[in-house]
């Protein structure tokens, strides 16, 4: 199993808000697919899957605040 986590976005940026998921649970994703958009300050950042497989679980809802390193989804 692989985890999609919120990467380091820059100095002093500790968290971001989930804006929208491009995939739903059960979808197949490739490792370099953008799977979820997060927003911080005035930036929208696309988080990549990081692994190919099936999106097994989405752990954070749209509008939810997430911290750097936090697991956003699971890929199997």
């Amino acid at each position: 199993m692989n985890f999609v986590t919120l990467p380091e976005l820059g100095e002093g940026i500790e968290k971001a808000t989930v804006a929208c998921w491009h995939y739903k649970v059960g979808d197949r994703v490739q490792d370099d697919d953008d799977v979820v958009e997060v927003v911080t300050d005035k930036a929208v950042f696309n988080v990549v899957a990081g692994a190919s497989g099936t999106l097994r679980e989405i752990l954070v809802r749209d509008g939810q605040e997430v911290r750097v390193g936090e697991v956003l989804a699971e890929i199997v």
Binding site: E8, L9, G10, E11, G12, I13, T40, D41, A43, F45
Partner: peptide
């Protein structure tokens, strides 16, 4: 390495 991968620095 983070390098220029810094959203706040870019803005």
């Amino acid at each position: 390495r983070q390098g220029n991968r810094d959203l706040r620095l870019y803005m």
